[in-house]
């Protein structure tokens, strides 16, 4: 069963917050169908009662004490920020017109 991946690409690209150019989308659709046709072969296997792998070596979950420890100084945390204002990462408005409505 071949899935028509073309219909899915727009939706998935939106979920991934990824702009794709039209020609990019077209090229990718064919390639993705091929890849998923191969990947889908695993659905032939009966995995009833099989636990999914969460860690390959079955290590216990590692927890540490909930204590504050030294961390990076603020200026180094912010040094790579493409847009910065004082000690903040600067981003475009997230909720539009909230200010205006007030």
């Amino acid at each position: 069963m071949a899935v028509d991946f073309g219909k899915e690409v727009d939706h998935v690209a939106r979920l991934a917050r990824l702009t794709l150019e039209p020609e990019e989308k077209e090229r990718m659709t064919g390639q993705l169908s091929d890849i998923l046709d191969t990947a889908r072969r695993i659905q032939e296997l009966d995995t009833g009662g099989v636990e999914p792998t969460s860690h390959v070596l079955d290590l216990p979950v590692v927890l540490r004490e909930d204590e504050t420890r030294p961390s990076l100084p603020l200026n180094r945390v912010l040094q790579n920020a493409p847009r910065r204002q004082k000690n903040f990462f600067r981003v475009p408005s997230i909720i539009s017109n909230v200010q205006a409505e007030k």
Binding site: L15, L20, M28, L32, A39, T47, V50
Partner: peptide, 28 residues
Amino acid sequence: KRRIIIGTYALSAGYYDAYYLQAMKVRT
């Protein structure tokens, strides 16, 4: 981009069990 799209697809609502979860069982 290709891999982000495949991965997002495999994890998305309605496909998670058939793709990602099945893959993790096959990994076992």
